[in-house]
Structure formats: C-alpha cells, structure tokens
Design a binder for these strands. Sequence first.
DNA 1: AAGACGGGGGT
DNA 2: ACCCCAGTCTT
Length: 360
Amino acid sequence: MGRFKNTKYLNAIQKGIMAWSSENPRHLPWKDNRDPYQIWVSEIILQQTRVEQGLPYYLKFMERYPTLLDLANSTEDELMKIWEGLGYYRRARHMHQSAQIIVQQYDAIFPQNYSDILQLKGVGSYTAAAIASFAFDLPYVVVDGNVIRLISRLFALVDPVDDPSVRKEIENLASMLLDKTDPAFFNQAIMDFGAIQCKPVHPECNHCPLQEKCQAFQKDMVNLIPAKKEKKPRKTRFFYYLVPYKDEFFYIRKRSTTDIWSGLFEFYLIEFSEEVDWSKILPNVDLPIKRVHRQQNKYKQQLSHQIIQAEFLTVELIDDISILERDKYTRVKRKKIRNFAFPKVIDCFLKDKDVILNLH
DNA sequence: AAGACGGGGGT
DNA sequence: ACCCCAGTCTT
C-alpha cells in the first residue's frame, strides 16, 4: 500500500474528487454559508443522520432559534420538543450547554479556532473540522462515514475500519489528500463524492472518475470494503407503561441521564427483562388506582443496541397522588401533553390515544 | 477497546 | 433481519 502514498498519486485523487464535485453540485440550506452557528447546528443534526431525515429538523430549528442567543436562552424542555423524533437526544442537551458556554466564555462569539471548537460539548474531530473549514477556511479534513468508506476503498484497506489503528490510517490518508488551499470546497467535495458516487451499496464504479486509482476496484474488492467488526446481538427490554390520569391531568416524568431517551418524558414505567402479563403486574403496583381502562396498546421499537417492547395501560387515579409526587412525577394538562417531548413509542401511543380520547 | 446512544430508510 | 447514516462520549 505504501507505494500509493506518493504525492503524484494523492494529487490525482484530490483533483479527481474536486473536479467531480464541480460537475455534481449539491444544493442544501447550510451550503455556501459561512455562519459558524448555522454550520454547527447543521453538523450536529447530521451526526449519524441522513440528510433527508435531518433537513426538516434543521429548518424547524433555525426558525425557532435564528441565533445562538435564542438557543442559549431557551429551556432544555423546549429544545427537546424541537428534537423529538430525531434520536440521540444527548446532541440537543450538549448543544444547549455549549450555547450557554459560548455566551458566557466567548461573549456570544462562536470560537474561531479548531481547538476551541473541539472543546464544545458534542463536538468531536469530525464536527470541529467541518466548522473550522466551512466557516473559517482552516485546513482540517473531515472524516465521516462517507470519507471512511471512500478512502478504505481507494486504498483497499481490508481490515475493519472501526479498529482504531485503521481509523488512524484513514485520517492520515485523508489529511494527505486535503487541498489546503481550499479546505471548505475539498471537504464538501469528498463527502459528496462518498455519499453520491462511492455509495455503501451499488457504488457507481462503472462511471467513476477514480476507477483506475481505486485499489478496491482494481482488485475487485469493492463489495468487501469497508469491513466492519462483528456486532453484538441486541437485547430486548420490556416496558410496561401505566398512563395515570386524574380529572384533566396526566402524570409524567423526565427520564434520567443514565439510560436511553434521557431528557425525554414518559409515563409510569415498570420494566422487565421478559414478557409479563398485566395481571401479574397490577397487584404489585404502588399507585392509588381507581379504574383500569380496557384498552391496551402494544408497540415494538428497534434501536441500534436494544429492542423495546412497550405496552400501555391507562389508569384513573383516586385522590391520593403522594406516591407519584415522591417519585418526581408531575401533572400536566391532558390537552397540553403534546407540549412535551416523548420517545417514539410513546409518540405512537399518543397518536393512537388521540383518536380514542379525542385529545387536543 | 468496547459499549451506549435513536430513528428512518434501503436491500 | 440487517446495514448504514455529515459521530461523540463514557467506561
């Protein structure tokens, strides 16, 4: 592989990527934009998220928080409502914290050098490089999923790309490829190239400008690269939600920071590691239940590391709600329930429930 | 070095 | 059912 790490070869690849990009421009709201705040927002939203999925959230976000000060002055709960359904909710909480740090420590001026940007919560090497290059023309190369795939194929790296040593090698190669005279254009180009030309499945090798430079193509190994380590099987968790209400109020609670969906709200949760019948659960529930609704709702959700099977049972309470207050549950008007951010399974439940209870 | 963290879309 | 996605943080 070493013989391909020469200037002439790397230069040809660099020029090929940039020429391709000139011929295949991509138009997105955050492109041709030098505002570090807007770039930051778009990059955080797009972490592990497809452009098509993130775009509507970006538009909604910028409408509600046009400036960094708007974000810093918001509440975390309102921000979570904007983020609802997008996943990886830690991103939103980190953004909120970072916005307030920028206001306090940088006088609301977005930091303008790589190491300061990298210090921000939720900003790693990829996002720092993206902001530094797009907003400030600083020569830091972006290494995202697209770049990892493209480089591992170009240089026929057969070892797992999620191995730290391989990852390091990819970052070295990417740095050598970077056009330091125009890092913003190059970074955009290499990501676009990976996303559109060097796709994960069915890459456009038959009309690829880098075909003869691509070691994977030359060795007929494109479909074997990038290699990944084996993944562990997902565990299934069984969530049994009681949906307590009394008069016009629901009782909900914010989830802790040590589990999935932290910062989102939920109802009264009893969790098991296996399927359980409600008849076994209800007698042991510590709630002053007056009446149990007949309607039961079941949902299944696949997450990246676990599978959630959730069941919902609505219950009417009698007067004594001290148990709920002790456990940090708060009451909210039933018609205001949609002002709070919920995980997808609860969102699905509420959508079905709307029909039944005619909420809103 | 490995695990955790969401949800949607493609095959 | 499995893979991937404009990754980052924690242990």
